[in-house]
Structure formats: C-alpha cells, structure tokens
Amino acid sequence: MIGFLLKRILLLIPTFIGITIVSFGFVRVLPGDPVLLMAGERGISEERYAALLSEFGYDRPIWQQYLEYLNNLVHGDFGNSLVTKQPVLSEFFTLFPATVELAFCAIILAIFIGIPAGIIAATKRGTFIDQSIMGTALVGYSMPIFWWGLLLIIVFSGTLGWTPVSGRISLLYFFEQKTGFMLIDSLLSGQKGAFGSAVQHLILPTIVLATIPLAVIARQTRSAMLEVLGEDYVRTARAKGLASRRVVGVHALRNAMIPVITVIGLSVGTLLAGAILTETIFSWPGIGKWMIDSISRRDYPVVQSGLLLIAAIIMIVNLLVDITYGLINPRIRHQ
C-alpha cells in the first residue's frame, strides 16, 4: 500500500511542475507585453514602464523569472492582486469556503438523487420508468447550466418569489464569519431566521451546480448496476433464495459502487468549472466568480495563481480518489 501511495505521489510531480509552467507561462510567454497588459487601455509612461519592468523582474531571462516564481510559491508567496493589493493566497482562502459549501451541497444532492435513480432505472430496465429516468438524465447532462440557472431565477425568484436572486444571505443579518461556511455561521450566530435565509440563498445555486454531476452519477450507477446484475455471484445470491432487495442492495450495489465512486471523485473538476458559471449567475462570492472578475479586470496575478491553486486542488482530490479506489479494490493496488 505504501509503495502504491508513493508511486501515485511521484507521478504527480511532473504534472505539478507542468501546471506551474502553464500558469507562469500564460502571463509571460504568450504574445503581449505583461506590463502593457497590466496597464490596460489607459497606457503607461516610458519611465513607469521601465520601473515596472524591473520591479516585476521582466527584464531578466525567462528561466530566472520562472525559478524565482517557483521559489516564491514554495515560500507561500502567490503574488498580490493588482486591484485590491491583497495577497492572492489570503483572498483565495477567504473566498474558498463559499465555493466548498456550494460544491459540497451540490455533490450531496447529486449523490442522494443520482444513485437511487440509477439503481431504480437498472432494476426496471427497459420499462417506462427506466426510460423516463434516463431521458431526464440525458437532458440534465446536455443542460447549458448558465441558462438553467437563469430559468430557475425567472420561475422561482421572479414568478413565484420564493427564493432570493443573489448572494449567500440576506443583508438583514450580520454576524462574524467564524468558519466561512454560511450554514454553520448562521446557526452559530443564534440570530432568528439567519439559517433559513442562508438555506434559501443556497437552494437554487445548489440545484444548478448539481445538475450535471447528478445526471452523470445516475447514468454511471445504472450501467454499473446492469453490469453487476448479470454476474454469477448475483445469480448465486438469487438462487440461494435471498430477497431481491437484499441481492440488489447488498450484493450488487457494493460492487457497482466502485466506478460510481470514481465518477463522484472526478466530478470535482466539473464542480469547480461549473462553479464559475453558477457563481456568476447567482453572484455567489466564491472562487469561480473571483476568477471571472479577475479575468475581466485583467488582474493577472490573481488569474495566474488562481489557476494554479484550482489545478492543485483538483490534483489532490484526484489523488485521494485514487487512494480510496486502491483501498476498495485491491486489484488496482497491485497492478
């Protein structure tokens, strides 16, 4: 197991170096002068240009700049935002809980609806129920989620007036954010109605962000279940006279879950990409919206380090998925 772990971690090193090169290179190697890019459309005087050039070290050879960049990263210096002048890392950690909260609720919703839906579809294979579930899943899978979000806003916020349009909590409530997770903080604050308001704000973004993972999980569960239901040991369990529910729920499900867990793990990337669109639509103050705002403000240090941090998080999550996978399935470990 330790050998398996070490191998997985070693394999990540070249990818991680590649990620740093990409995030470094985006601002420096691609066409366009970084200083002029940062100055934007207003332009810049010659002296200021020269001063900035040496301040950022752009007048030195590119490999020296890269090594310096790496050195800074190792020391936890991810640069400062050009707009707020704050360190990128601290901005990231301030906003990250909002995205985690949203993504966590979304994946929970996707799992708790997707897996049962997939199991039902598989056990009722070929029936109207199966076709309806799979049809709905395919629609969800094909959904342009930015439009889906707007549609939900029209219906639930506009016509019905049930949910708020944007933000994480009503402005009526103000309290110290101890954990950064609004659901927990609103409970801790003890203010009446604060938790309800946080939940109300969370519902629509959660549905929107959960849509695609839910569809993927339902489809994957169905096909994994179908595969397993045809196996000999399932037939044996049935022949033994076990109740159908026990065969499906215990014997088949446990084995079918392996590919489903992989899919759930891999959907972290989907969730972070989806968070960009979802957070933009609902003005959710997380890292997705932060990246979009920084891109449109041409805040390159934020874009650069944000890209790096997001990729690093996805990499770590994928590693954890790999390890879990190895724990469940010994065959993978010994390959």
């Binding site: 990620i19 691609l30 990337g269 990409a273 669109l277 891109i295 449109s296 874009v303 997001i310 996805i314």
Partner: peptide, 15 residues
C-alpha cells in the same frame, strides 16, 4: 489537470 472551461477562459482572455 485544469477545469477545461477555466483553461479555455484564461486562454481567450489572453489571446
């Protein structure tokens, strides 16, 4: 390793 939409977005922002 990058979310595809984010990578595309950053590329387009620079190009």
């Amino acid at each position: 390793a990058f979310p595809s939409l984010l990578l595309a977005l950053v590329m387009v922002a620079i190009l």
